[in-house]
Amino acid sequence: MSTSTGAGTGTSTAPTASTIETTAAHGNLTDRVKAMQSVWILGVLVVIVAVFGVMSPSTFLTTGNLTNIAQNVSIWAVLAVGMTFVIITSGIDLSVGSVLVVSSVVSAKVMESMGDSGWTTALVGLALAVVVGIFWGALNGFLVARAKVPPLIVTLGTLSVALGVAQILTGGLDIRSAPQVLQDNIGYGRLAGIPAITIIALVVVVLGGIMLHRTRFGRYTYAIGSNETSARRVGINVDRKLVQIYALSGFLAGIAGILSLAQYGTTTIAGQSLTNLNVIAAVVIGGTSIFGGQGSMFGSMVGLFIPAVLQSGFVIVGVSPYWQTVAVGSILITAVYVDQHRRAAAVRGG
């Protein structure tokens, strides 16, 4: 900041600094939450929960069921944190499911060879999964930022390559020997009645949210998605940031790989096939713009719970599985449609 800005211009008839709004439109927390992009979609979630709650109060609105829902979205939540960053840059990461699988395969293979089933083995496994995840994420980022290949193509490619590597490493056979401590404590352990895996996911989500909304890293993520040229002009090293953001997504896929191993006790090589699309749908439902520049971690989490709650509710009231996919798809389109209109209204100043 230049020194001259600090010196007041006494002759000015302009408004004083105090008349310009410097706090988020409305002071208190409730109003701030109301002003968020994702607030209407939270309303949708509340309505869905209420409808199912009325339809089958004794089964849907039980602690057991709600805990199950939270547990079942935990792994996706970890992936959604990275996906939110990536989509805000106007990118996409289709490879998360495959990177999850290859991370869990590498880590399971090494943990298996260590033979032991204790915490040391589990920590080595976690470290390996994270390293493998970062490798694939950084590779995505490098190809997007430096080689200028569109993210859709890059991550479609690594989706396939990473899964292939997992199959080569295992011969296609799932490894079913995750250390017992992982399965007992992380996969099915509970703290104060809350599944351990959900607590871990919550910590990741909160840290991710702080990083996105409070730090310079997050600010640059928005700037790159909002106007990449302007980000470059003000001296942001956009290429390096993109590599870091995709690496973050890979890192989280590595963590998700270990969590998946803990939860399922197997590497789910043939599974996770729809994980990427489910996570992308959640992030987009939550108000993150596929064109970049806009989105919130809170919204992504709401977006994650909508399909999960719908599925659980539909199963409980006994709706055919085909209607579930129809419902989730419709909500996805409605969410984006409404969001577009809100945005157009905002630009008009409405």
Binding site: S56, T59, Q272
Partner: peptide, 25 residues
């Protein structure tokens, strides 16, 4: 009878369904 099924033959998709069925008792 109520019938449910995942979109793919995939345990990560089937587990949530089984959990919800369990909740429906």
């Amino acid at each position: 009878v109520t019938t449910q099924g995942p979109q793919k033959f995939d345990p990560t998709l089937q587990k949530p369904i089984v959990d919800s069925v369990t909740a429906s008792k």
